[in-house]
Structure formats: C-alpha cells, structure tokens
Simulated scan of single mutants.
Amino acid sequence: MLRRSLARVIGIAGFVVALAVGVSAPANAVANGVDALPDQFPYAVKLTMTDIPRPDGSKYNSACSAGLVAPQWIVTAGHCFHDVNRNPVSGPTPYKTTATLGKVDLADQGGVVVDVVEVRQAGVNDVALAKLSRPVYGIGTLRVGRHTPAVGEELVLAGWGATDSVNPTPGTHLRYGVVAVGALTATTAAVHGVWPKDDTSACTYDSGAPYFSYEYGVPTLVAVESDGPDCPHPNAETTSRVDLLTDWICQQIGH
C-alpha cells in the first residue's frame, strides 16, 4: 500500500529514482529524506531571512520553508515572521525576506528569487499567508485543502531545512519524505515518519514546509510544519492544519 501511494504521489520517474537512491542520498534538507528531482515539487518555497533583530540590538539570519498557493501568495508557519520578542506579527515583512522558487538546488540555473513584502497571520494556529512582491507565473501551485486529515493518512513533506539538529544549517537542496497522521486536535495534526525511514522528519529551518496529499491527481496542501523534537526522530511532529483556514486563505488571496 505504501509503495502504491508513493508511486501516485511522486510520479513514476521520481519513484524509480527514489528507490534507487534510497536513504544514501546526500543530506541537504529534511532529516533522512530524499533529494527532490527537478520540477518535482515546484510549489516548495525556500525562505531566507536576514538581519532579524534581537532584544539586545544584535541581528541574526534564519530561514523557513513554505508552499506556493497562488502566483503572489505563499503559506508558511506564523512564527516565521515575528517581532523582536518573537511574537508573530502581521503587516509589512518585519525583516528582509526572500523566496526562492522554481528550482530544487541553489546551484541550479533558473528559478526565481523574489522579495516577501507582507504577512497576514491566521490567528487560529501557527499559519501565516505571505505576499510576494510580484506574481510568479509558470510555477505550479498547491491547492488549499478542505478535508480534515484522517488518522493513518499519508502526506508528503517537502522542505529546505537542515538534516540534523546538531549545528543545523539551512538546506541547499530540496528534500522530501512521506509521513503518516497519528493524531488530531482541533487545529493540528501529529505526524510521524514512514518513508524512506521511520525517523524521516522535519528539521530546523523546515518551519512552514508544506505537507500535502494528491486529491484526484492535484497536489493539495493539508498542513504546514510547526514544531517537533530534535531531528531526525521517529516521534510525533506537530503540524498546523489548513482545512479550517481554507475560506480565510481564499478570501485573502481573492480566490
């Protein structure tokens, strides 16, 4: 059953390569994940933040992941955009943030790098909409799901995060894995690794990474990465569901 679902989700070509690569693939993002192929997940977005202020006046750089849901809009974790006291904020982007789209490796030619200019916090859970400085056309988007995740449902995670919690650095290559829903709350879904290993998991800088399924062949956003233990790990990872926010998201982006 897992093999059939993987073949459906990542496509025959991707599935064959994934099996050939297995868990020995170079580690660049998503702990114990697999390298994404060119154009495999075009809607997976890398966010790079610079000069984030600290209360002591110093600054630092960081990163998150996101999913493209419309030519000018991405969905990510609310905590990726915050004030100096780490409280989530809406409005103009609080620090320089760029979105990289349309490539799976930073060394690849092509792709698009565009500024993120506005943030809108959902307020219900750890989810935010962010607006790009201009629409990006020719890159596939995720449909925002309306269905409540089911316990046992398998989802794909695609992110640009680190692969280990020890001295983590943002990823340079998009990676992915498969997880299963283990439990639900009113706003979250707890997930755990299924493939390629049971400890395949989101990691540092994967915050906001999309978890998606395929409904009638259409990539559909189900949740975004929120929080979890040090990676890699086989335990529950907390994701923020989007099904309870679908109407709000569609209203905000004009769909």
Rank of each mutant, 00 (worst) to 15 (best):
E215R: 10
I249P: 00
V179H: 07
E215G: 02
V117F: 00
V16W: 10
P210I: 01
Q109V: 04
P210N: 02
A13R: 14
Y216P: 05
G67R: 06
P88S: 15
A25E: 12
D105T: 04
N87Y: 00
L174C: 07
S58R: 14
P232Y: 08
F41I: 04
R54A: 14
W248E: 13
N61W: 04
T185Q: 05
C203R: 08
V119I: 15
A25K: 02
Y205W: 09
S213D: 11
V191D: 12
I253W: 00
T185Y: 09
D39E: 13
G138D: 06
E153L: 09
G22E: 03
V144M: 07
K59F: 13
E154S: 03
P38T: 12
I253F: 01
E237P: 09
A186S: 15
N85A: 15
W160H: 03
T187H: 02
G182E: 05
T98A: 10
P26Q: 01
P170N: 09
L245E: 14
W160G: 01
W73R: 13
D199T: 05
S207L: 13
D83C: 08
Y95Q: 00
V194F: 01
D51A: 15
L37T: 01
A29S: 15
Q121H: 09
R241H: 10
V127M: 01
I139V: 15
D126G: 03
Y137V: 12
A31G: 07
A13M: 02
Q251P: 00
M49H: 10
R143P: 00
T239C: 06
R3C: 12
T200F: 14
A202Q: 12
R241M: 14
A25S: 15
F41S: 01
T148W: 10
V114P: 11
T50M: 07
C231G: 08
I139E: 08
V191A: 04
